[in-house]
């Protein structure tokens, strides 16, 4: 392997963007999944539709919507910049946002299934023992749904790592700022003599995905073994 500096930066940025996207969106994914799994309310199907929209929309459309909304002139983008100094467009933070939104429906689906599989009778039993709804959630629901929540996070991470269309539309393909493995490979395939570096990045991409999958498998097994030893 002899990776160029730009490629190494792209790998590092990919990991950073996917990790931030996964970690920041996970609490929201759990909250939305819980809402969809456990609550009946007016407009639930609208929420459900909105969450799943990035899954069915062409990624370019999602990216373009982000550009309109979160770009420098976009209403949310302007607000974020004036109040918190956060700039999304053409920055790695914007790439993380695009990845988080693209990965969101996958995480929510997996976590929702896991939450639905938790027996509500156990939650009721916990509440009769004096546990507030928050305590029930933290000590009964989340531990019992943990393997599914982890699966949702890994799925989201994998999706974020491979996200291409929305990212390149929203934040472009700027080496050192928004160029990820996926957009770097695309860049290599567009330039003469780019086959070798494209192949190298492809192999690294496969390796990262495998490591993430194996690590999550091991973590899930360790958690269930730890639960058995308690």
């Amino acid at each position: 392997m002899n990776l160029s500096l730009a490629d190494i930066t792209a790998i590092w940025l990919s990991l950073k963007i996917a990790s931030v996207a996964t970690l920041v969106s996970l609490p929201f994914a759990i909250a939305v999944a819980w809402l969809l799994a456990r609550c009946e309310f007016f407009g639930k199907s609208v929420i459900n539709g909105l969450v799943h929209l990035p899954l069915v929309l062409p990624p370019v459309v999602t990216g373009y919507l982000l550009l309109i909304g979160f770009g420098k002139q976009g209403p949310i983008g302007e607000l974020l910049e004036s109040c918190c100094g956060i700039v999304m467009s053409f920055r790695w933070t914007g790439a993380a946002l695009a990845c988080a939104i693209m990965a969101f429906p996958l995480s929510v689906r997996a976590i929702r299934l896991a939450l639905e599989s938790v027996d509500t009778k156990l939650e009721a039993a916990a509440s009769t023992l004096g546990a507030t709804p928050w305590h029930v959630f933290a000590t009964i629901t989340v531990p019992l749904a943990f393997p599914g929540i982890l699966a949702g996070a890994v799925l989201g991470f994998a999706k974020a790592l491979g996200e291409f269309g929305a990212t390149i539309t929203f934040v472009s393909n700027i080496p050192g700022e928004t160029q990820t493995i996926a957009t770097a490979i695309y860049g290599h395939t567009q330039s003469p003599g780019g086959d070798a570096p494209a192949l190298q990045l492809t192999m690294i991409s496969v390796a990262i995905a495998m490591i993430a999958l194996i690590a999550s498998e091991m973590l899930a097994r360790r958690v269930s073994r730890k639960a058995a030893d308690l």
Partner: peptide, 12 residues
């Protein structure tokens, strides 16, 4: 304190 018909012990 509530003792249910089906026990409902926490499996984890």
């Amino acid at each position: 304190g509530y003792v249910f018909q089906d026990g409902r012990l926490f499996p984890h």
